[in-house]
Write a protein that binds this DNA or RNA. Structure first.
Lengths: 234, 234
DNA sequence: TGTAAATTATGACCAACAGTCAATTATTGA
DNA sequence: TCAATAATTGACTGTTGGTCATAATTTACA
């Protein structure tokens, strides 16, 4: 049955063409000012057809977010292959996430937009929602893996709980990057205007400070001085 | 001219009545499913009147966000009066922000929603946007003050740059609370489902870990061991 | 107190847009 | 060739944010 497969393939291609068109329209304007009619025209399809592939405008936007998540997951997967010390992997994860946000601000924005809508119902039902969710789990799993490696090679404090720390790293860095992107993208929308600080290295500095606290007591001094506090377990 | 003042007052009252009504409607549903007609009915006013006080639905929502920011700013201001050591103040700031989010999840959500819209244009023009902005500056200023106190009383590492660190604390904690609220509010929308970790103390743990890294070298051991890394300056 | 002017409020109305569906066209299988 | 199935269309609908001419109310002042 080659026909069924070909049709499957064509359907997938068309789906991607639609997402491409949607990106072109939305990224050169904004979601809220982009209409399904515009996207349909850009895709050279009728609006009705869009709804054969995506059940709502939000769903289509979720597909865009999903692409971004895939890119990020790929980048992180590659880092895991670098065979560095655990603490170094975490640093690289952070840098890669930051690079990703800079390289694909539109995808990062999509992620933020979709998240603010996750606080509401609606998105839940979609398969795409499930897909982005899976990718987020994948991403956090990479981080957990990095932490475990660090625990093994001794580059990370023993009292760290991998799952908990992975969420902390992801969530806090995400917050940092949000603030960074806001300042970077639209000067006037800056989350913290008038706080006169060069924002350029703030994310890197944050990563450094946060990870410093994860290192085991500095062994070059041969003494356990930094009084670590255990992370309370679940 | 007592009349002008009375009118001023009445206008302010009516404005607040509208925000009250909007909160009642929006908080018991969602922004995107709440209509201006519903809010008008709840406020016992015509829709046209709403537009005499707020120039758009978003503007009205900004007013709600603004209320939340005021509450938070007040709480933080009170902390500053506690006359604790700098590092303790920062810890209290973090706890208070977290408490605020738990106590007024609707306001926190409003903040998140409005922020995702800040990535787009539109909001900029509004006076209310300027107002929330001012309050954010106020909040960050409190944090800066706390850091400065910590630098003076020696409870915070000398190499810390207050402005930069204040942004880090605010932004990263905000990211943490976002993730927390998502998990807390809507189990199924959890940012990190399947990552089996009790989320209950994760924010507190995060605050502890992050702040630990800010303490100066543990003097009780009489030796500078923890190799601090200076935050690169602007 | 009476009335013109100014302020405030109303709700019918409009335009825009997400989403639908009966009708149409294209493709498949025999 | 043609019936059955699948894919596509675009006119249409319902909803809703926002507007504006009109009306009601209040103020200023003779």
């Amino acid at each position: 049955m080659g026909i069924a497969e070909r049709k499957e393939r064509e359907k997938e291609e068309r789906r991607n063409m639609i997402i491409d068109a949607a990106e072109r329209v939305i990224f050169s304007n904004r979601i809220d000012t982009s209409t399904m009619d515009q996207i349909a025209e850009e895709a050279e399809l009728s609006k009705g057809t869009l709804y054969l592939y995506f059940k709502s405008k939000t769903d289509l936007y979720l597909a865009i977010q999903d692409r971004g998540m895939s890119i990020l997951a790929d980048k992180l997967a590659r880092v895991l292959g670098e065979k560095k010390k655990g603490i170094e992997l975490l640093k690289r994860f952070g840098e890669v996430y930051f690079d990703y946000a800079n390289q694909f601000p539109n995808y990062f924005n999509a992620e933020m937009f979709c998240r603010s809508h996750e606080f509401m119902e609606e998105t839940t039902a979609s398969e795409l929602f499930q897909s982005t969710r899976d990718k987020r789990i994948e991403i956090v799993s990479f981080i957990i893996r990095g932490i475990q490696i660090g625990l093994q090679d001794g580059s990370i404090r023993k009292d760290i709980q991998p799952e908990e720390l992975s969420l902390m790293l992801y969530a806090s860095l995400n917050g940092m990057i949000q603030a960074y992107m806001l300042r970077k993208q639209v000067e006037k929308h800056d989350l913290f205007p008038e706080i006169r600080v060069s924002i350029d290295h703030i994310v890197q500095d944050f990563i450094r400070i946060l990870l410093d606290g994860l290192k085991p007591e500095n062994v070059t001094n041969g003494q356990n001085v930094h009084e670590t506090q255990a992370i309370s377990r679940a």
